[in-house]
Simulated assay, not measured.
Amino acid sequence: MAFPAKFPSLNAMEMTDEARQTLVRVLRVAFPHENFPDGPYERTADKILVEADAETWFRVALIQGLQSLDQLSDKSFCSLNDDEALRVLRRVEGTEFFGFVRRTAALGLYDDEEVWEILGYQGPS
């Protein structure tokens, strides 16, 4: 159950396409697999967005966290190379934002059937 925020304007915060692209980039940097196509990362980002949409606190933390990545980068987080992006993520790894992303992504990314195929996992018994 989602409770309304103290400030109603926070309830109205929504994810933009740019924020979704940043989230996909966060996932690629935090869970690097050169042989993974974009699909599993995009589906995992969508799972995170569904989770965030269900809880005001997580939605606000996610939106603010994604916005902070550009501020910490002094440019677009998506334009950073992998090493630069990893350094930025290490600066936020103790935040609610990153904890939420990490928890949700660890389950979502590795529960993707396309990932199973790539890793040679034959699925649940």
Rank of each mutant, 00 (worst) to 15 (best):
E96A: 08
R103K: 13
P32Y: 10
K47I: 05
G123T: 11
E14L: 12
R103C: 13
T16S: 09
R90W: 09
F3Y: 14
P4V: 05
G94N: 12
S79W: 00
F3E: 14
V50E: 13
N81T: 04
I118L: 10
A85S: 03
V29A: 09
S73F: 01
V115I: 05
M13N: 07
Y121C: 15
L23I: 05
F3G: 15
P40D: 07
L119Q: 07
N81R: 05
R25M: 10
D74F: 11
E55A: 11
A19P: 04
V115E: 02
R103M: 12
V115G: 05
Y121N: 15
F36V: 03
V88I: 14
T56C: 09
C78S: 07
L80Q: 02
S9K: 10
D74V: 12
M1W: 09
S79K: 03
C78T: 07
A61Y: 02
Q21S: 13
F7Y: 15
E93V: 15
L27F: 09
Q122M: 13
F7Q: 13
R20Y: 07
T56D: 06
E93H: 14
H33M: 10
E117S: 14
E114F: 11
P32V: 09
K47V: 03
V50S: 11
E42T: 08
D46P: 12
F58I: 15
S73M: 00
T104I: 15
S125H: 13
R87V: 06
A30Y: 00
A19Y: 10
Q67F: 02
D46A: 15
E117G: 14
S9N: 13
P40I: 02
E114L: 13
E42H: 05
V26Y: 02
D74P: 04
I48Y: 04
G94K: 12
I118W: 05
E96Y: 08
A12N: 13
T56P: 01
Y121S: 11
S79T: 01
G108Y: 05
Y41E: 01
G65A: 02
L119T: 03
M15Y: 05
V26R: 00
L62A: 00
D111C: 11
M1D: 08
D82G: 06
H33P: 04
D38P: 03
D111W: 04
L107I: 14
E55T: 13
V88G: 04
P40H: 08
R102T: 10
T22F: 02
I63G: 01
R20Q: 10
G65N: 01
G65E: 00
R20T: 07
D53I: 08
L62S: 00
F31N: 10
L69Y: 00
T95R: 02
K6H: 11
D53N: 14
P32S: 10
E51Y: 09
D17M: 05
L10K: 11
T16D: 04
L72D: 01
L119F: 03
I63R: 10
V50R: 14
Q21W: 10
D82W: 08
V24E: 05
D82Y: 09
E14F: 06
F97D: 07
I48S: 08
A52N: 02
F31K: 10
S125V: 13
L109F: 06
T104C: 15
